[in-house]
């Protein structure tokens, strides 16, 4: 466990020092701070528009950070040949991979906490909500963190056998399918009118591809008053899903990385 933690903490340090990530973070915070002034667009639904737009910025920025942070992790180590120094020590390849993943997740967590704090602060300043409402608004970023953990696992898996550029587009594509298209595929899968081929494709996509949309639980937050039963149970399921899927991807990455010439 010690080698994993050592690699993880080093990865966090590296991530914090990377300017490109800090710039994306800065832009994210900047966008968040502009949103309250855009709320004049809608009179009655000012609060829901404000929250949903803030969430969208938070989610988009976090995804960009997650992808850029992780796609370079392994290729950079190989390119700079620093991987030889690490692997020459009593560190297994799988420990290296898991350490890198954990470091990325920790760094992502830090950045999401920072952006969420700004978001909650702005929401408090402009809307003066009750403490319960504030807590409710602060809930969604935790699930975005889980989503980004899953995305980081996807990127790390691809980084074991692709170049960063290919990985970037692959990861963006997978994230797009898992967020924007997931409900669409799910509808096609359950639509009896769709062609059998389309249904099979849709069923495969919904079952096999990572469903990032599971973590988008903002609907009752931006539209209060909805009655949702057994929500806690759902939260447990999606945490379990993120852990299982990430673990699966890491294991697949280990199998590939173990065979790779470095």
């Amino acid at each position: 466990m010690r080698p994993i933690m050592a690699i993880a903490t080093t990865t966090v340090g590296e991530a914090i020092r990377r300017r490109v990530l800090l710039i994306i973070l800065f832009i994210g915070v900047l966008l968040l701070s502009i949103i309250p002034s855009l709320s004049v667009l809608t009179a009655r639904s000012e609060q829901s528009t404000m929250i949903s737009t803030m969430y969208a910025v938070l989610r988009g920025t976090s995804a960009l950070i997650a992808i850029i942070l992780t796609i370079y992790m392994i290729p950079n180590e190989i390119e700079r040949r620093t991987i030889y120094t690490i692997l020459s020590k009593p560190v297994m390849r799988w420990q290296f991979l898991v350490g890198k993943f954990m470091g990325a997740v920790l760094a992502l967590g830090l950045m999401i906490v920072l952006m969420s704090s700004v978001m909650v602060l702005l929401f408090y300043i402009f809307q003066q909500p009750s403490p319960e409402r504030l807590l409710e608004v602060a809930r969604q970023p935790f699930f975005y963190f889980l989503e980004m953990m899953l995305l980081a696992a996807v990127c790390i898996f691809f980084s074991t056998f692709t170049t960063p550029l290919v990985n970037f587009f692959l990861s963006i594509g997978i994230w797009g399918v898992g967020t924007v298209l997931s409900p669409l595929y799910s509808s096609i899968a359950s639509n009896s009118g769709a062609s059998p081929i389309m249904q099979s494709v849709a069923k495969f996509v919904t079952g096999a591809m990572p469903a990032f949309s599971n973590y988008d639980v903002k609907n009752p937050i931006i539209n209060p008053g909805q009655v949702i039963e057994n929500e806690q149970k759902y939260f447990i399921y999606i945490v379990l899903y993120a852990i299982l899927y990430s673990a699966g991807l890491l294991v697949a990455g280990m199998v590939i990385f173990d065979k790779r010439e470095v």
């Binding site: 079952g207 639980v217 609907n219 009752p220 759902y234 999606i238």
Partner: peptide, 18 residues
């Protein structure tokens, strides 16, 4: 993950959060 997603999560999410 597939059992979780197809069996529980997918329908619940569509019903309550979409």
């Amino acid at each position: 993950q597939m059992a979780l997603q197809v069996g529980v999560i997918q329908d619940y999410w569509k019903k309550n959060y979409w």
